[in-house]
Design a protein around this nucleic acid. Sequence first.
DNA 1: CAGGGGGTGT
DNA 2: ACACCCC
Length: 718
Amino acid sequence: MDTDEDGDNNDWDRSLESDMLETEGSMTNRVTSISQKVILHFDLDCFYAQVEMIRNPALRTKPLGIQQKYIIVTCNYVAREQGVTKLMSVTDAVEKCPQLVLVKGEDLTNYREISYKVTDLLMSYCPLVERLGFDENYMDVTEMVERRLKETRISDLSFSGHIYKHECVAVDEENARLAVGSVIAAEMRQAIFSMLGLTGCAGIASNKLLAKLVSGTFKPNQQTTLLPYSTAELMSSLTGLIRVPGIGYKTREKLKALGLVSVRDLQLFPLPDLVKEFGEVNAKRIQNLACGIDESPVTSAGPPQSLSDEDSFKKISTLEEVVKKTEELLTSLTERMHKDGRQPHTFRLTIRRYTVTNRWFSRESRQCPIPNHTGIKITCGNSEAVPQLLSLSVKLFHKMVDTREPFHLTLLNVCFSNLQAKSSSKSSIASFFTHKSPTTTQLTSQRQVEPDLCESVANSQFTQADVFHKEDKTWNSIKPIEHTSIFPTQESQTQPTSINPISPMQPVSEHSRVTNMNIRESCMSNVPEETLCSKLPPGVDPEVFKLLPEHIQMELITSFQKKDSAELIYGSADTSFEDDPADHSTLTFNQPRTPERCEPALNYCRNSASHNHELDKTLSSAQSTMELHSGLIKDTESHDIPATTQTPQSDIPPNVDPYVFSQLPADVQRELLTEWKQQKPVLKIPSKHSHKTSNTKDKKNAAKGSQCNNILKYFKPN
DNA sequence: CAGGGGGTGT
DNA sequence: ACACCCC
């Protein structure tokens, strides 16, 4: 019943063969190479630690550990140099490194928010992005690569970053697609760095497994491409079976029982015997994994399918304590759920009992439907929801624990699932096409437009972006970013081999610029450059602008044109940095640019009509981006520019940067405030359950962009 | 295994 | 409801 592969009996043979096969350009090889995908895997460096270092740049030079309970879940590279590792106990870590600075990381709010910004940013370039945890993303760029390839000569291509087990490889027909993939990966990493200040690694390969494995080969802040014929080498470099993603603890134990400990062991083990242990599907899957074969598709990230909140502790042994802890958890969970905007229809309570043996095993849960009246209160933010859920919790709790007997819990978890976009009877296609601004009426579907799809997309206005936009206060509260340290110049970056052709950091060489132009698809050759360039508001750094996906660029340009309001904000754009001129590496608005600096940007302004991109989605990403920019404006310039008006932050929507707001003329501020007050109900978008879906993944139909219009609010007084 | 999440498959 | 997977 799985939609997955069938007829993959010979996949095994064929791909093993193709691994071993030399690069003979046989016909079969050609055919398979055409169907080869290009998959990127992105992995942020010590993610939580990076987030904390952004919040407090003083931590950058210190050994930093992120602490959850008594565990260091991750640490920065300064700490690693001193022997601190992930998942080390606090005691051990402090022993190794007495100066270790500890930051509590139990509240994931900030991490989650920034994590989604990364995913969103990636999705804005290419919708096929899959999250893995908070700090990893897969991306299927096969189509993007194909498009670029058509427009560029192979002789103009080169690899960006490392190539697994090679110093340097010439681009030929066989590897051209991976080469393009490597360039795209470099661009994405640069975008993540420029927009969000985060560094990370990337792997480029023909499937998810290999992309992930190869991404870790050069570690912080570098990228690596795997050429197909190095697959076997990569796989046998793995020290144990558990290093194969997809083979976890349990599987490893079973394999060990069969006498299999190495990757080679599993590759060579007779499949029929493996089938006896794991069943046919799983046996093939894991043996394929051992060979570097993985046909699992990249499934689009959507909004999360469940929201949960949990806490662990030494001991809870009374009902009162359970109720109190559960109430705390429910309070924060319902708040998150409310911000999400969807309505949960299932509630689950999970406990972990203390046991001497088997600590890891013992999670028990009970779930139940959430009565509609309660569900509605959750999404509406009605505080009555918590007591109602608490009552449900207690009932569920009693199904697991007999409170007349002694009990000893070490964990409580509350979880909402079966999340559905709120239904809104009045919402219809018609309203979708009429009530939005023209620029937001584009479709979000990556597939061709089907009316019902269109409708569900239109009406399902939940977006991940909403979540973090609403929670954006946390972002706004982030401490000033020291761009000198957070945005290293190209030269100071640790990876000499991955010079990015589109780096906004430094003047780009003529050569790389040309190369890049050639790689880029259908530039807007029919639009006079000056025309486009002149559309950028004076304060917008073209080098940053060009990092945005072209449809967002077009969107912004359109918005700039519509209202000259950009000047409201950027009119004083001459307030350039007094900083070190060498610091042009910094991501900036308001940084004056010479006209020639605009030119490269034009290469990124392709005809959006040719793409049918999902504007709704990407706009919310652009919005995040713009928020960040405004954050940076604040961060970098707050000392020279006094606020003109003081407004209680509570009156400003969370997605509007207070500093940017404060720079607006007083009358404009007043107008905006009025508008926001009127729009309050509108901002909290109702929407309809999203059935039907567009992509490989069905369940969720991530329709995004309820607040797309808000991006314009940064520029228009309206 | 920890910790605080998240996912899919049965 | 759990098993297993991922970070």
